[in-house]
Write a protein that binds this DNA or RNA. Structure first.
Length: 477
RNA sequence: GCUCCCGUCGUCUAGUGGUUAGGACACCAGCCUUUCACGUUGGGUACACGGGUUCGAAUCCCGUCGGGAGCGCCA
């Protein structure tokens, strides 16, 4: 190991563009990003598109979009693995020349049979190495060979992992993996090693599902006499029921979380706590995370994805974000939210101003941006409102009478702001010997169509005097 | 089947031989209150099981059970 100690940290996030950026991938990216930030290093992005059939441009842009939305920026240009195929071929042929790899002419049918027999005999399904030492002169005509690694057969391979510790894999359980396919294109296993080396990656941070791959890749490094990067295999995220998070099982793309009204900083905060901890701390600003994050503090056991916790964290960030900033966040999110169109249609400067006034009352009650918009839907609801069941009950004859009685009071209020309205309404309530709730609830029902809403004085102000009166008259009649 | 990894409240976790096993989310109850939230006070709930080692184990060892991952010319 002649790795210079002065080397700056270089991590990489290496997704395969066969689908969206799911929550597990997002966390892997986050950990890579945090570690790079925490150490003053760099995070590179490499798209693993050597599977030409399954890689799509749509998936690539979804991944890039997802990372950008999450605020996980990468250093340098995005690297596309397939573009480096020539280099991969060159390395494989070099290994061939040095006797560390060999051509294998086994057919797919032979391979299948090999696996079937091994399974039947209770052995692990492995390639048996039949072309390992065979004379290429015996090669059957018309079969394009693959190039396989001449793997070590005895002993064991040790993965010295920052998270998993020292993991020992018997070499007999590793077979001669394919480096180059018969069409001359590299396999993932080979491309990863060559690229990580060429990109000077110092730390490989990825899911534990790659742990046994790590042993195979280490053998390739050794065949190449290359320095093996540090590795950190992080635990996976499971669904709420403990089952693996798969596409059909709750593993949504990060774009789905954006559409559900989660804030990127909330998602980051939630995600970083899945597997990583820092004492009893729960809330971490981005600055906190990048300062405190370390690899050894990552646990080894898988975590379940808990929406309730995510919602709580999200609510925390909604509540604590400044009004003007939150408003800008909402404006940016609107195109992605289900309720977006209704608000976009109403979004004039005047509306924006009133929305901002209503925001403090709104954000206190929302766990997601969608909650917030739902709570604010009275602002864009067309007259006459159709009260829901509970609201309708508040608008019985007593309630309507009280509303009628309040109309002249409201008409006389100027300026029509929350503080003035509150003062006038409270004195009205006092003189009539009622409780505030007796007037507030019917008002709420008439103004919002619901039995719950932000503070009623704020609602009045947000709606404005004429709209408020109109809504009250709609119901009081 | 084989190899590897994991196992503290329902969930995320703190804990590294001596703690009344802590925090957070969720849940229940009270307070606050114009509703709902927020806030606040209090409450119940956990060391998978069985053996060791030790004066003493959530912490160390072994086994069992449970969960997960990997075993492709996918990544």
């Amino acid at each position: 190991m002649d790795e210079p100690m002065s080397d700056a940290v270089i991590t990489r996030f290496a997704p395969s563009p066969t689908g969206f950026l799911h929550i597990g991938g997002a966390r892997t990216a986050l950990f890579n990003w945090l570690f790079a930030r925490a150490t003053g290093g760099k995070m590179l992005l490499r798209i693993e598109d050597t599977d030409r059939q399954r890689s799509t441009p749509e998936a690539i842009s979804a991944i890039l979009d997802g990372l950008s939305w999450l605020g996980l920026n990468w250093d340098g240009d995005t690297i596309y693995q397939f573009a480096r195929a020539e280099r991969h071929r060159q390395v494989a042929h070099d290994m061939l020349a040095r006797g560390r790899a060999y051509r294998c002419y086994a057919t797919a049918a032979e391979l299948d049979e090999m696996r079937e027999r091994a399974t039947a005999e209770g052995r692990p399904p492995r390639y048996d190495g039949r072309w390992r030492d065979r004379d290429p002169a015996e090669a059957p005509a018309g079969v394009e060979p693959v190039i396989r690694l001449k793997a070590e057969r005895d002993g064991e391979t040790i993965v010295d992992d920052i998270v998993q510790g020292r993991v020992v894999i018997p070499n007999k359980d590793l077979d001669d993996l394919v480096l180059l396919r018969s069409d001359g294109n590299p396999t993932y296993m080979h491309a990863v090693v060559v690229d990580d080396h060429d990109m000077n990656v110092t730390h490989i941070i990825r899911g534990v599902d790659h742990l046994t791959n790590a042993a195979r890749q280490i053998q390739i490094y050794r065949a190449l006499d290359w320095v093996v990067p540090q590795m950190a295999h992080i635990p996976l995220i499971h669904g709420a029921d403990g089952a693996k998070l798969s596409k059909r099982h709750g593993a949504l793309g990060v774009d789905a979380y954006r559409a559900m009204g989660y804030l990127p900083e909330a998602l980051r905060n939630y995600l970083v706590r899945l597997g990583w901890s820092h004492g009893d701390d729960e809330i971490f600003s981005t600055e906190d995370m990048t300062r405190l994050f370390t690899l050894p503090a990552i646990g080894k056991s898988a975590a379940r994805f808990d929406v309730a916790k995510l919602e709580n964290v999200n609510g925390h960030y909604i509540r604590t974000t400044g009004n003007e900033q939150l408003l800008e966040t909402i404006e940016q999110a609107l195109p992605h939210l289900p309720a977006g169109p209704a608000f976009l249609a109403a979004w004039t400067d005047e509306f924006r101003r009133r929305f901002l006034k209503a925001l403090p009352g709104l954000k206190e009650r929302a766990k997601t941006l969608n909650d917030l918009l739902d709570m604010a839907s009275f602002m864009v609801a067309p007259r006459p409102l159709r009260p829901d069941e509970k609201a309708a009950r508040l608008l019985d004859s007593d309630g309507r009478d009280r509303l009628s009685a309040i109309v002249p009071v409201l008409e006389s209020i100027s300026p029509f702001d929350a503080a003035t309205i509150e003062a006038r309404l409270k004195s009205h309530v006092e003189t009539t010997g009622m409780k505030l709730g007796q007037i507030a609830q019917p008002l709420r029902a008439a103004l919002t169509g619901r039995a719950m809403s932000p503070g009623i004085f704020d609602v009045l102000e947000a709606l404005g005097q004429s709209e408020s009166l109109a809504r009250i008259k709609d119901q009081a009649a």
